[in-house]
Design a protein around this nucleic acid. Structure first.
Lengths: 352, 352
DNA sequence: CACGGTTGGTGAAACGATTGGCCAACCCGG
DNA sequence: CCGGGTTGGCCAATCGTTTCACCAACCGTG
């Protein structure tokens, strides 16, 4: 196989020095070259099929044009793929590429993974912990620009991007209220994650705004048996919804902590002979299309802006480290808007 | 910030040459060093917190310890995350890391993406096209070891790993037959992808084996309206299933092309007052847990071995390029077994 | 014609590792 | 004391870029 051709081959073929070639190919400002030379170099480079060697450049410039993405459970939650996608797109737009590692939540593995990233001189790191958790930043990342994804950290110096759970919960419940519902239940699991607190807060605020008294008996918590699995959530959602629906004065609207729990609510409703949305309106959270779209009628839900989160995180990171165009900026912490995705599971409450 | 410390710092601190440090740290065979020196170097490296610079090493050795992963629709299909995960795990086990790019199916973007990978001197490439399609390998990848993932290629010189769709279809239908079903329908979409042909083939073989005549009227094809979306598939699955279930002599078992279509079948059954699995047994394909587990009763289905595919692809790639331990091997093309995931949607047919 | 300013470059030292070739010192038998 | 093998280790080139520092030639001007 023919040796890969480098900058010096181009220089030789064009009859100039490598310095000149480098200047021209990189469009370095302030360095002059005649239009003719410039033209010739480009052409020769093209003809020879010159490809930059990023390892060599990185060695010299101390920037690898590479971003490390470290996730504790890549793809365990399906939508996390969208985070990666968003990050990758934003990175690619700046000529950067994502270096992916996964830790499966294992400390030791995480250490090794981070090491592999640092060894490769990543320009920065995206540290993604699914489910909007509170985490602490591994020591080894202290010295590299890092932004947290779907997670936050005690230390205020660490930038992050998370979904605005409160606004999301508020939006979900508002959708019910606007359709005329006054008696609105909520079904939740029992894990104490920030996401849960936020969504409950949103629920309460929306009620309050509408002048509806908050009734604790309308929020039903059930523990998932097989925790974290779709089946576990759906089952917990079923039990929680059932409890609410057999109440004396049952709610006409239901806000479910997530789409999986909403699936359980559908089952509970069906079992009790309640039709959706005729007898019961339901709104979920997450917009996992595999659930929200395959349910019938399709589930109205609030979307977790995964793609945007990935994209914003990269943008933040790049702002942090500075790009050729712009200087390094300040640490930012961002909460992203969660839009409503209205489908067919919400309508006016039945007249009594 | 203190300059990162390099091999020469270690050498200086240990009072030896960089050559010696390199030999020791890399455990180069055939190069001798006294036990004492060895010990000292390790210790000094540890104390100073020496970290290898992979860019520099890669520049010298012409291996970046990096694998490019290029997908046309990363994470569009949720389980594709599992492919990446499998690949990442297998790579990490060999000290390699995945460089991720996505093309969104755009030719131009693909070209640029591949370029970015090659620029970074990846040791090999995983080219993943979701949905087991037939693709042709981009010209620019010809000169780099590449293995196809969930895709195949006309050229027999290109290694690939795909699921064994025929076996999968066979397994699905066998599950029904073993429970006593003789009248088994199949619901499919209309896209002509290899996956479809394979699964149909598996269906026919299983019937044949059991001495059941193949009846074309029992395979119902419906075109998805919003193609590719879960809602589209579910809807097509609903229509197809409905057609079969209102037949004079309706099937007692249903093999659905995928889990989304199975979700549609559930709806059709419910609408017609048929209970699952009492009146109708259903088996899906893909094992998208978000669907198969949130359906009620939980869906028996055949699993696409995404994780293993990713892992095997990396193994193949590494075999192809050769590792320190083993020499480069031959091109291999692999079909992976699709196991049955039995849940609650299959039982014996109702007695008539 | 001497001089300062521009134009259009060039040379060579990094960056941080790997590795082929060389070599001094020691040991041991004869 | 010589010769040859082994031990333990070092020199310097190299990988492909970037970039600092320098410079020859030319041009217009006073």
């Amino acid at each position: 196989m023919a040796r890969r051709i480098g900058i010096k081959d181009v220089a030789a073929a064009a009859g100039v020095s490598v310095t000149t070639v480098s200047y021209i190919l990189n469009r370095v400002e302030g360095k002059r070259a005649s239009a003719e030379t410039r033209q010739r170099v480009w052409q020769v480079a093209e003809e020879l099929g010159y490809k930059l060697n990023n390892l060599a450049r990185g060695l010299r410039t101390q920037r690898s044009q590479t971003i490390g993405f470290i996730g504790d459970e890549i793809a365990t939650t399906p939508n996390s793929g969208r985070i990666i996608l968003g990050a990758q797109d934003a990175a690619a737009a700046q000529g950067m590429v994502l270096l992916l590692v996964n830790t499966g939540g294992d400390e030791e593995l995480e250490r090794r993974s981070i090491e592999m990233l640092l060894q490769r001189q990543v320009d920065g790191v995206l540290y993604a912990a699914m489910y909007h958790r509170v985490v602490e930043l591994p020591e080894s990342l202290r010295s590299t620009p890092t932004v947290l994804l779907d997670a936050r950290c005690e230390d205020p110096a660490v930038p992050f991007v998370v979904p605005d759970e409160v606004q999301g919960g508020h939006t979900a419940v508002r959708e019910l209220i606007e359709h005329g519902h006054r008696r609105i239940g909520m079904t939740i699991g029992v894990d104490d994650i920030p996401a849960l607190q936020g969504r409950i807060e949103g629920y309460r605020r929306a009620l309050e705004e509408a002048g509806i008294r908050y009734d604790p008996s309308l929020v039903a918590a059930e523990k998932a048996v097989r925790i974290g699995t779709p089946a576990g959530d759906a089952d917990a959602g079923y039990r929680a919804a059932r409890r609410l629906l057999i109440m004396e004065e049952r709610p006409t609207g239901l806000f479910c902590f997530n789409d999986r729990m909403a699936a359980g609510a559908y089952r509970a409703a069906a079992e009790l002979g309640l039709s959706i949305p005729g007898d019961l309106s339901v709104v979920g959270f997450d917009n996992q299309e595999l659930v929200s779209e395959t349910l019938y009628p399709a589930l109205s839900t609030v979307q977790l802006p995964h793609y945007e989160m990935g994209a914003r995180a990269v943008t933040q990171l790049l702002a942090l480290t500075g790009t050729p165009d712009s200087p390094p900026g300040p640490v930012t912490q961002e909460m992203l808007h969660c839009p409503l995705v209205a489908r067919a599971s919400v309508t006016s409450p039945p007249r009594l």
